[in-house]
Amino acid sequence: MHALIEFPSPFPEEPGVVRLLEPPGSDIEALRARLRDGSYGRPFVLENGGLRALHFSLGYVQSVMKISDPCALQLGYAQRMTAFLLFNPRPRQMVMIGLGGGSLANFCHRHLPGTRLAIVEIDADVIALREQFCVPPDDERLQVIHGDGADFVRDHPGRIDVLMIDAFGPDGVAEELASFEFYERARGRLSASGVLVMNVAGNKETYARHVERLLTAFDDAVIAMSVREDGNYILFAFRDASFAPRWKFMRAIAIELQKRLRLDFPGFAQQLERGQALRLAQRLSA
């Protein structure tokens, strides 16, 4: 158990309480000032109204958890990242780069009992806050690893059915996770029907080059899904460049997933189909 201190939120626009990984007896007023001016430099917890959020700064919410239901996905981008289940409803091996507040880890651990999940997180402070976000202890199905995601993918000995990348920090995606070499290596680690799922956000000019590298490494076998409410894009890249989703068959899968997981999988399937159609049109007009 890591030491945490708690005090009322210093942010007038965000009431509640904050929790910090600081020892008892710390200078609360100095910490409040650093939180307000953005110089604190470590992840912290902000809790209010039944929700608990992981922040790197007030303006950057990494994850949100409903305290009464830790496995429910609150943010639109996290909900849409689960659309990989439309392509592979029962992955055996899943690797997640970026633990964050653990919402996707909790969701997958609860709802995919046949999946082994390895989560790689580079920030030890984020891992230290896992209990605040009800991330289960490591067991035979779940492992949280302190390390570099790019190194883990390079050294992984087996095949990965789903590789999920949600590793944004205050400065965006780490360059090691957005290089052509990483994407090429990641594709090589995927199983024959494997899929890479990546969250991209921020200024389009900032991440456009990352998207182009991903398209090149995966021979254009990529579908994009927009998340208007969060301003994100979710990218799905497939090991098999000739993979052609069976959209009519997928609708039945989407309805079953919606009943079981209470997310709008039929809507996700429609977005994905439109995304592929748009990509094909752009490719033909190029």
Rank of each mutant, 00 (worst) to 15 (best):
A201F: 11
G101M: 04
L117G: 04
W247T: 05
M94C: 15
F152K: 02
Q270K: 15
V222P: 05
H210N: 12
A178E: 01
E14Y: 08
F265Q: 08
R130S: 10
Y40G: 01
P170T: 02
P136F: 13
S57Y: 09
A83V: 00
M81F: 04
D138F: 13
D27H: 14
V64M: 01
G76D: 14
F84K: 11
F243H: 15
D166I: 02
Q143F: 02
R239W: 00
F56P: 04
A192G: 11
P136M: 02
D37R: 04
F11G: 05
V197D: 10
R185K: 12
D166F: 04
D230S: 10
Q62Y: 06
F84H: 09
Q282F: 06
A224Q: 14
E121D: 10
R274E: 09
A217C: 01
A3R: 14
S63T: 15
Q258W: 14
L263D: 07
V61H: 00
P245F: 04
V195T: 15
A254H: 04
N232F: 06
S191I: 03
D230E: 08
A186W: 08
A224N: 13
I165M: 14
V95T: 05
T115D: 02
G41S: 03
E181Q: 13
G172R: 06
A53N: 05
R283T: 15
A3C: 12
E13G: 03
V153D: 09
S9N: 12
E47F: 00
R279I: 05
D125G: 00
E13P: 02
